[in-house]
Design a protein around this nucleic acid. Structure first.
Lengths: 239, 239
DNA sequence: AGCGGTATCCACGAAAATGGGGAGGTCGGT
DNA sequence: ACCGACCTCCCCATTTTCGTGGATACCGCT
């Protein structure tokens, strides 16, 4: 049995490689989803992409991000249309890349208020969604769309998302750095700690008092939940 | 103008993605080339792969690695055939993925002693080489081969190596971890240091004496060139 | 005007880490 | 049989770190 074969341009293979690299390496200060929206959109030869994170407690989609979509329409989804969205619940249940047509025929979708009042507003016509999970924890989703007149998503795009899925999961699941809570000065001190300077050296380097260094360090370790400077040093270079 | 289009199976795309991930992440204890030989071979639908690092001072190929090739033939290359190798010098000069036929027609190659006494020994018939550089520094190469009867490498394989090239360069150029010099026990202690354990805790965890921990730690810090445990901790999670 | 976060500084004592020395055993390679 | 690398353990003096509980001042926000 021959495996499915996809057509990929050299530029697309480069994009795929860069995307994986970005997922593995980019700074953890910002939402990992940001680093990916545009790349996935282009790789899937799509036009639009949005991303939310499902909150099981409140039963709502949160933390919107989008590429090529109007912020105003995104707000309309958050405030109104997510509560009469006839497709997303079923797409999420699939737990792998799924074209919208798999949960509702295009002809039926086009009769809904959701399509005519919301999707059409930004030109979203053919959709494919991927929901990422770690066990049962929602990590976020990707909702990729093509404009009217473009062909619907096919096997190529579904399987491309299959390829990306484990890498996306890994990147989305990576916990936020405990160092994000540190102030600028505290992070600066942590950085010097990681280089092996003693507190006296740090004070001299930063031209501040020894007591100040101790203070920054104590606050920093408390915020990051570290019990000593070695753990803090490890954190500064783990993330 | 249409871009070149390649046929890639889903499995191959997955391999490509995993390869990039491996290059970015794998443990730096071992030679990064090791992590890549088999993957590249399969991605290029090839049968054999060898890798050397060119030493400009001695003018020799060093540090051999191979996939699917006999160690004995590798030794013959190092000791004898590298000095009458009619193709590699020219392939290296190209500085990008180049099939062997680009520097010598197959018909001519098959007349050489190098082919008949060396390449044929392991069944190497069609070759493609990639030499990696950082500026003018040699980072190592990949010499990928297909067996007799298989088709020669085409554009697909050349451009796949082009896609991989920057990622290979990055991975090969990453300096060896100073921690590579540590013994197993010393690394184990360093690992626990990075988790924030005190020496007493480490002793208890490893069920060895406090003095032993101090000894491992002193040796480890000396080898890694660290002045204290914080620097060592940073190293263990930088690499 | 008050509150929280930041940056700066101070002092003390307990705990931990560091650097120096050494000692004895195993194990693999020359 | 020796040597080097490793793992194990010991002592001691000094330095560094950690935790605690302060203080003052600036800033932005409400």
């Amino acid at each position: 049995m021959r495996p499915t074969v996809h057509d990929m341009s050299t530029a697309e293979l480069t994009m795929l490689a860069d995307l994986i690299h970005t997922l593995d390496n980019a700074a953890p200060e910002c939402d990992p989803r940001e680093r990916v929206l545009e790349g996935v959109t282009r790789l899937l030869r799509a036009d639009f992409c949005a991303s939310f994170v499902w909150n099981g407690d409140t039963g709502t989609n949160e933390r919107p991000l989008a590429h090529n979509m109007s912020g105003e329409n995104l707000d309309r989804y958050l405030n109104w249309f997510q509560f009469r969205d006839p497709i997303t619940r079923n797409l999420r249940a699939r737990r792998r890349a799924t074209p919208v047509r798999a949960v509702m025929p295009q002809s039926e979708l086009e009769k809904t208020e959701f399509f005519n009042e919301f999707l059409r507003h930004d030109g979203l016509h053919h959709g494919i969604n991927l929901f990422l999970f770690q066990g049962d924890r929602d990590l976020g989703d990707l909702r990729v769309w093509r404009a009217r007149g473009r062909p619907d998503f096919q096997r190529r795009e579904i399987e491309l998302l299959d390829v990306l899925q484990p890498h996306l999961c890994r990147a989305f699941a990576r916990p936020a750095s405990p160092l994000a809570a540190l102030s600028a000065r505290e992070r600066q001190v942590a950085e010097l700690v990681a280089r092996g300077l003693t507190d006296k050296d740090i004070a001299a380097t930063l031209k501040i008092g020894y007591a100040t260094v101790r203070s920054h360090l104590n606050h920093g370790m408390a915020k990051a939940g570290c019990s000593n400077r070695a753990e803090l040093a490890a954190l500064t270079h783990r993330y």
